[in-house]
Amino acid sequence: MSRTAETIDTAELMYPGHVGCPGCGATIAMKLALRALGEKTMLVIPACCWAIIAGPHPQTSLKVPVLHTAFATAGAAASGLRAALDRQGDTETTVVAWAGDGGTFDIGFQALSGAVERNEDFLYVCYDNEAYMNTGNQRSSATPFGMRTTTTPGTNWKRSRKKNIVEALAAHRIPYAATASIAYPEDLMRKFEKAKAMKGGSRFLHVFATCPTGWRVPSEMCVSIARLAVQTNIFPLYEVEDGNRYTLNFKGEKPVSEYLKPQGRFKHLTQADMKEIQEMVDEDWELLMRKIGLDPCG
């Protein structure tokens, strides 16, 4: 990977001085996303960490407009913002809903499902830090099997599996649904550019974003952990067009234990637990490969 100063777009659409935790992966996600989306972008942000990172009133950390909305309403508010812009004759601006996993998988799911069922013309981004982090690490339906949170503490660590949100969105047959990771910036930016260009319908991006504070990993490992998630296939990078055309972007080869072991949130897991998780990963991978039309072992 070699980039030169000349080939890099130097204008960041984010200000320094925001109040995200040191090493916040969700912040990297936004920075990269805005590089791809450009300044003709309007964001809708419901309650989540990013509602704070975007700036406590009267500050803003973003150089694009942000509409702060209630926790459950990103899908609906983005639909409304799109309609308002259309009324003004502004078809150029990209409307982007930017919500956490709690705001997407759980409380915001009905608004999102309703909006994409109507095929609303926006890009919905879920940055996934796998729990309700802004309120102190409560489990969500994006929290993975095996993770300790404040609502799945001690030996009661989470026993149910993470909801597969991309499949749920693909089931709505929207034009574009894909996963992306902060550890693969070129791939992530390409997907944002692609989604931006697919005007006229609903696009959904599920972005993996490490939360060093909540996951109990050193801040400097933020990107490495995200990379391991892809390399171990626990968070595969793939795209789904029109709900049925699948493309795989990366094939991981490492055992999932390499991803789990360095993280405090999984510290309690035994060998047997990790084996169980490996089996789940393998099963999900096999299913994904079948959809893609690839040999799972090939």
């Binding site: 001085g17 925001h18 700036g55 009267p58 500050q59 803003t60 950390s61």
Partner: peptide, 8 residues
């Protein structure tokens, strides 16, 4: 919000 976070 009309001022940036650069003050922090």
């Amino acid at each position: 919000s009309k001022i940036s976070t650069e003050a922090n």
